[in-house]
């Protein structure tokens, strides 16, 4: 296991999952169980029907129940169901979230959604690419701007002129 921030009391090999991993699986299992419960309850409202004529709620309800069972199994066999391959190239799931990049990527898509219908594809793309690029710690403002300019011009030409996507270059 590639453990970057050594957890106290952890540091075991493959046999002894660290406590952080157990908690990760607990959360994971409960998340699934929660989604399953929601699906089952909502599905039941759609009408389960009978076995010979199953209703629209039957399939979601069954799946929801299965998901609850699987989720609970994940949560409470966390030590057994260890992801043996977690150490191979999956260090990322243990590394802390890179918030700068995270916020930049989410913001860039939001900007694209908000700006493009109002200002047109070129400004929308510029905002999207520029914001996303600024999420990388090695990117300078100038580099991001150049990249964004290149992509917005090339992208707009490719999609509007080449592929006839129904968006204006500029304006709404």
């Amino acid at each position: 296991m590639q453990n970057k921030n050594n957890m106290p009391g952890g540091g075991g090999g493959l046999d002894q999952p660290r406590s952080s991993e157990i908690w990760r699986d607990r959360r994971a299992g409960l998340l699934m169980a929660g989604i399953g419960a929601f699906a089952a309850v909502t599905g039941a409202r759609y009408g389960i029907g009978t076995l010979s004529r199953i209703g629209p709620g039957f399939f979601p309800t069954v799946l929801g129940i299965v998901l609850v069972v699987l989720g609970l199994a994940i949560a409470f066999t966390a030590t057994l169901a260890q992801d043996h391959e977690a150490g191979h190239g999956h260090a990322a799931q243990d590394a802390p979230v890179d918030w700068r990049g995270y916020v930049a990527i989410v913001a860039s898509m939001v900007l694209f959604i908000v700006l493009t219908p109002v200002l047109g594809l070129v400004p929308g793309t510029f905002a999207c690419v520029f914001t996303a690029a600024m999420g990388d710690r090695k990117m300078t403002v100038l580099n991001s701007a150049v990249l964004a300019a290149v992509i917005s011009v090339a992208g707009a030409l490719l999609f509007i002129w080449g592929l006839r996507v129904g968006l204006p270059y500029f304006g709404s």
Binding site: I105, S108, M109, F112, I113, T116, P117, L121, T125, C128, V129, F130, A132, A133, G135, D136, K138, M139, S144, L147, A148, I151, S152, G155, F159, L163, V165, G166, L167
Partner: peptide, 24 residues
């Protein structure tokens, strides 16, 4: 470098999804 790839790819994602139904 990845820092040039992912912003460009993100634009592709946005416009690609948009173009399916012309719908934000």
């Amino acid at each position: 470098p990845y820092r040039y790839l992912y912003p460009s790819a993100l634009f592709f994602v946005c416009i690609g999804v948009y173009s399916v139904r012309s719908d934000m």
